[in-house]
Simulated scan of single mutants.
Amino acid sequence: MNIDIGINQEDRAKIVESLSRVLADSYMLYLKTHNFHWNVTGPMFSTLHVMFEEQYTEMWNALDDIAERIRALGHFAPGTYKRYAELSNITEEADVPSAKEMIRQLVDGHETLIRTAREAVKVADDLDDFPTADMLTTRMEVHEKNAWMLRAFLEHGAGSMQGDASSD
Rank of each mutant, 00 (worst) to 15 (best):
G159W: 09
W38Q: 06
E92R: 12
R12E: 02
K14C: 03
W38C: 04
I70M: 01
N8D: 15
L23K: 10
E141V: 12
M28N: 13
S160V: 06
N146R: 14
G6Q: 06
R21D: 09
N61M: 11
S46G: 10
A99D: 13
N146P: 01
K32S: 10
A120K: 08
D134F: 13
D129C: 07
D125S: 06
M1L: 00
P131G: 04
L150M: 09
D168H: 15
A158L: 05
H37N: 15
M102Q: 11
A158C: 07
R151G: 04
E155W: 08
T91Q: 11
T57Q: 06
S46Q: 11
V40I: 12
E17K: 12
T112A: 14
A24K: 06
S167R: 02
E141Y: 09
E68C: 10
N89S: 08
D108G: 13
L113C: 12
W60Y: 14
D126P: 05
M161H: 00
L48C: 05
M140Y: 00
L154E: 00
I3H: 01
I7R: 03
V142L: 05
F36Y: 13
G6R: 04
K14G: 00
E58C: 04
A117R: 06
M1S: 07
F153C: 03
T132P: 04
A120I: 07
D11W: 02
A77F: 08
L31Y: 12
A165K: 12
Q9C: 01
E141A: 15
A94W: 02
A72I: 07
S46W: 13
Q105M: 15
N35W: 10
D168S: 08
A165P: 01
T57E: 05
D25Y: 08
P43W: 01
S98N: 05
D108Y: 13
A13Y: 04
D64G: 02
G42Q: 05
N2W: 05
M59C: 03
D64M: 02
R104Y: 11
G109R: 01
L154N: 03
L87A: 08
Y27Q: 14
E10T: 13
D11G: 01
E93G: 04
Q55N: 13
Q105N: 15
V40C: 10
M140T: 04
W148A: 11
D164P: 00
E119K: 11
A13V: 09
H34Q: 15
A124R: 09
R21K: 15
L29I: 08
F130S: 11
E58L: 14
D126T: 15
Q55M: 12
I5V: 14
A67M: 04
Y27N: 12
A94Y: 01
H110Y: 06
Q9W: 03
G159F: 05
I66M: 04
H37G: 12
N2A: 15
G163T: 02
M28W: 05
F153G: 01
A94Q: 09
E10A: 13
L106D: 14
T91P: 06
Y81E: 04
E17Q: 12
Y27D: 14
A77T: 06
L48F: 01
Y81F: 09
K14R: 06
T41E: 13
L136P: 08
A77E: 08
L127D: 12
V96S: 07
S46K: 10
H156Q: 14
M1A: 00
S98H: 03
Y56W: 03
S167C: 10
R83S: 08
R139K: 08
W38S: 10
G74L: 00
